[in-house]
């Protein structure tokens, strides 16, 4: 059996032949036991694989995984937004930002006074974390695990700190 015949047999199994070629292969199979044996082997493999892919689970927790997706989206949004910003707008932004910040602070302060936000959670809501210049960090809170995670993303700096810090060897 040559290579073309073998591939034709496979196409017959996968229903990729024209009706005419299909008939030809059927006739051939009736007289060739080697062809029948090869077709049986291909069929066995296909049916064994069907619906029997091993189920693999994502090894990361749902919240952690999603927080990484969110962070990447934010990062890409920033990159896309950056060139569009006009210098005039940037200059205006300088004035708008402190005003907006002051307004937000006043609103938050008013909410604290009205006991809508407890002071204990205020810092957390406002994200009072600070990272060294060499690395960036992202924070997420998992209610289910009762855990706040701050993951330092700058690999080069984090690696340096970690390997030095742990001294595994």
């Amino acid at each position: 059996m040559n290579n073309d015949q073998q591939l034709k047999l496979q196409s017959y199994l996968d229903d990729e032949l024209s009706p005419r070629e299909n008939r030809q292969v059927t006739e051939w199979l009736a007289v060739d036991s080697d062809a029948r044996a090869l077709l049986a082997e291909l069929k066995n493999t296909t049916s064994a694989l069907s619906g029997n892919e091993l189920e693999v689970k994502l090894p990361e927790g749902r919240d952690f995984y999603f927080s990484k997706i969110q962070r990447q989206l934010e990062r890409e949004a920033k990159v896309q937004a950056a060139p569009v910003r006009e210098p005039v707008l940037a200059r205006l932004w300088k004035y708008v930002l402190p005003l907006a910040g002051t307004a937000a602070a006043v609103i938050v302060f008013a909410m604290v006074l009205q006991k809508q936000i407890s002071p204990a959670t205020l810092a957390y809501v406002a994200g009072e974390g600070e990272t060294s210049e060499e690395m960036s960090a992202y924070t997420y809170h998992s209610q289910a695990d009762g855990m706040t995670v701050v993951w330092l993303a700058d690999n080069s700096a984090a690696t340096e700190v970690s390997s030095e810090a742990i001294e595994i060897q």
Binding site: E53, E55, V56, K57, L58, R62, Y65, F66, I69
Partner: peptide
């Protein structure tokens, strides 16, 4: 949606 299908996409 991510929560529902994350395993399948990762797999």
């Amino acid at each position: 949606l991510v929560g529902r299908h994350r395993d399948k996409i990762y797999a």
